[in-house]
């Protein structure tokens, strides 16, 4: 066993591993042979110009699209030795549970099973709240599966058995706790559609967190937020990572947010990964600069040549 302690977290202890992910829509290749890791307890950002395929990656990870090719492994706990993954891949099963934790092959699972079993929660680019339900109800819906079991699949619930009553109280408490956390407690009884945009964003994150995810996928959480709201969002994400131990994968355009909070950045362009590393590494990567500023490929090579020359010198 070689010493891997100097490797970054996403190499040593990934919670999510995407390998050779390819997604084609007819003739269009939205994502091409993409591989990257999401480190446990880290904030990973997926960035890239418009149309780079970021949301497609999200939809593949969360099961809304079935990838054309590739493997997406989600790990709970210490599980996830290469042999175990290989064994699971060979077999036809979606997941394997061992004493160390559990392994899930997300590309084999449907959307709601991914959220329910693999514990991957997500938010949406265009916010998808239950607009006609109150803020509180939104957070209760997120705890559906636990409450369903507690209500004895409705039978016990109809008779209001004590087991269900306790679960209901706990669910309320959790929802109220999250509302307090995202500063929305005073709006608990207002319909979600009535909230201002920034509040809706935070509510959607709180709702995703109510499913107790191991991995939280955020699709442009800072889009349309003003600077103060952006700062609040940063705090919230740090809180989630610190207090809940949830790993975060996010898509973001706001470079300020990305550079400030991300431990690890993956850059996509035209469905291909062009860079992968810490904020510092990515910021100085010439191909990233080229992709963002729209430099011709030949120029990229020139820049690279210059850089290489400098390194060698």
């Amino acid at each position: 066993m070689s010493d891997t302690s100097h490797y970054p977290v996403w190499e040593r202890d990934p919670v999510l591993t995407v390998e050779h992910l390819t997604m084609r829509f007819g003739g269009l290749v939205a994502v091409n042979d993409l591989s990257f890791n999401v480190g446990r307890g880290e904030i990973t950002a997926l960035i890239g110009p418009n149309g780079a395929g970021k949301t497609t990656v999200f939809n593949c990870v969360t099961g809304f699209y079935k990838p054309t090719e590739g493997r997406i492994v989600m790990r709970h706990g210490k599980a996830g030795k290469a042999d175990d993954i290989a064994a699971l891949t060979r077999g036809g099963r979606q997941s394997a549970t061992s004493a160390d934790g559990a392994l899930f092959l997300l590309e084999r699972m449907t959307d709601f099973r991914i959220s329910h079993h693999a514990k991957v929660a997500r938010t949406f680019q265009n916010i998808r709240l239950f607009g006609g339900m109150t803020t509180l109800e939104n957070l209760l819906v997120a705890q559906h599966n636990r409450l369903m079991v507690a209500s004895g699949f409705t039978i016990g619930g109809i008779f209001n058995l004590p087991g269900y009553r306790r679960a209901r109280e706990a669910a309320m408490e959790k929802a109220i706790g999250w509302l307090r956390q995202v500063n929305l407690l005073h709006r608990a009884d207002d319909p979600a559609a009535d909230l201002p945009y920034g509040d809706q964003r935070r509510l959607e994150i709180a709702r995703a967190m109510c499913t107790d995810p191991h991995l939280l996928c955020l699709d442009e959480p800072a889009a349309g937020l003003n600077p103060r709201e952006s700062a609040e969002l940063n705090d919230l994400l740090h809180y989630i990572r610190r207090e809940c131990g949830t790993s975060i994968l996010l898509i973001e355009h706001d470079m300020g947010v990305v550079m400030e909070i991300s431990d690890h950045i993956v850059v996509l362009d035209y469905g291909v990964k062009i860079s992968d590393g810490t904020a510092f590494e990515v910021r100085n990567d010439p191909s990233v600069i080229a992709a963002y500023l729209g430099v011709e490929d030949t120029e990229v090579e020139q820049v690279e040549a210059v850089l290489e020359a400098e390194v060698q010198a």
Binding site: F130, L140, H144
Partner: peptide, 30 residues
């Protein structure tokens, strides 16, 4: 029964389904 079900998780899931099916699936609701 209807009024009772509305206050139970199943009824809430029905209404959530009416509001946004995709969001429901993202929350693990079958």
């Amino acid at each position: 029964v209807t009024l009772r079900l509305r206050r139970l998780p199943i009824g809430r899931a029905w209404e959530a389904l009416r509001e946004d099916e995709i969001a429901c699936r993202s929350l693990g609701i079958n």
